[in-house]
Amino acid sequence: MGDTVDLDQFSDWMRRYAGVIHDNAPLLTELDSAIGDADHGSNMDRGMTAVVDALDVGEFTSPADLFKKVGMTLVSSVGGASGPLYGTFFLRFGGKLGAGPVDAEGLGVALHAGVDGIVQRGKAAVGDKTMLDAWVPAVEAYDAAASSGVGAALTAAAEAAAQGRDSATPLVAHRGRASYLGERSAGHQDPGATSTVLLLETAAETLG
């Protein structure tokens, strides 16, 4: 159902994601402790808690407004590299959304813009063992399924993201803190890709 997504659904998505992150924070931190600085869970939890606080007090008239707030909040509260990365994603994503509800095609355009922002900010590519290993297959899958509607497309995207995350696990990290570990990073699941999968799974549940 639902060929378009409106402001309230986007807002729900963010609130739901905040809860999911909170529940998964220990897992994310544990993943990060193996190959990074053991703060991804707590950083994302702090960021999304700040987002919920901002949503509670803010009045938003459009999805663009909403995601500008989300992006800036993440930028200034996450602390680690995921702050500017997710922050840039939401700023660019929101920049492509208009004032009213958005359909599957429009949502795809926004997702692309957001992921392009992550690429530009992090200068990483698929195979570097970063969140892009989840994002890039996800937007491809979304595009392929977009004609079937928002829900189906997001579900396909979430599944592709999970596969991408898992396919990156055996890889050696080339970007971010994990890259300092070199070969030793192989065999560990990437925390950034993991939080991306959670974001898309939550999107499929709330926006579909």
Partner: peptide, 8 residues
């Protein structure tokens, strides 16, 4: 708290 803030 370690971290950076682009707005800062």
């Amino acid at each position: 708290t370690f971290g950076t803030d682009a707005t800062e």
